[in-house]
Design a protein around this nucleic acid. Sequence first.
DNA 1: ATTATATATTGCAATATTACGATAATATTT
DNA 2: AAATATTATCGTAATATTGCAATATATAAT
Lengths: 107, 107
Amino acid sequence: MGATKTYIFSTKQNELAKIAKVLAHPARVAILEYISKQDACICTDLVDIIGLSQPTISQHLNEIKKIGLLKGTFEGKNLCYCIDQERWKELQDTFHLFFSNINRNCC
Amino acid sequence: MGATKTYIFSTKQNELAKIAKVLAHPARVAILEYISKQDACICTDLVDIIGLSQPTISQHLNEIKKIGLLKGTFEGKNLCYCIDQERWKELQDTFHLFFSNINRNCC
DNA sequence: ATTATATATTGCAATATTACGATAATATTT
DNA sequence: AAATATTATCGTAATATTGCAATATATAAT
């Protein structure tokens, strides 16, 4: 008990839920927004911008990384995080499809 | 410790996260998909369709209701659940905006 | 090599979520 | 009024998430 029964749902349903879960925290929304607004992609200052501790930010970044949304490369001592545009579009499509496939003739 | 620090984020960021949280469970995705596919909206059989217990389904429905996505009216002994089209479009726009506002010139 | 700076990992406590049995509430039917 | 059917709520156990201090790791600069 207590654990999500993923096995009774379809792959697509689990996929959407998994992606949504990453967006289900304001810190991760804020991180994605911040990174996307940067011209360059040196994101050293997320800790100051967001206002959470460095380990916490690091963990959130890791959650975002898990669904393939971040490309990270070292540039000097700083880690350069960028949003993976291909993956971003994929997720956009996933959500678009989900929101589009809804029946209108009800109630 | 342990609780999300909502107060350090913007209303919009918290809003998106809150909506995403509802979609962050495959059962709720499945429920929304099922309801949207029905011509009529008598959704008594969700328990059989999804494969979770009646209390669990009821709780999930409640989560969906909390963000205003469900219109529910009693029709006889059965509860008639429908998706609120207005609200649905709002959420669709919220996500669309979020996914659109992303910088392209990076990395 | 040592120091400084940036990010990752570990360990742990607080809180939240998920799921279901038992039970209550509500409405229909007999 | 009693029985039936459907949904909601309560209580509780299992699991997951959130957040941070402490520590480890990695690169840069001195």
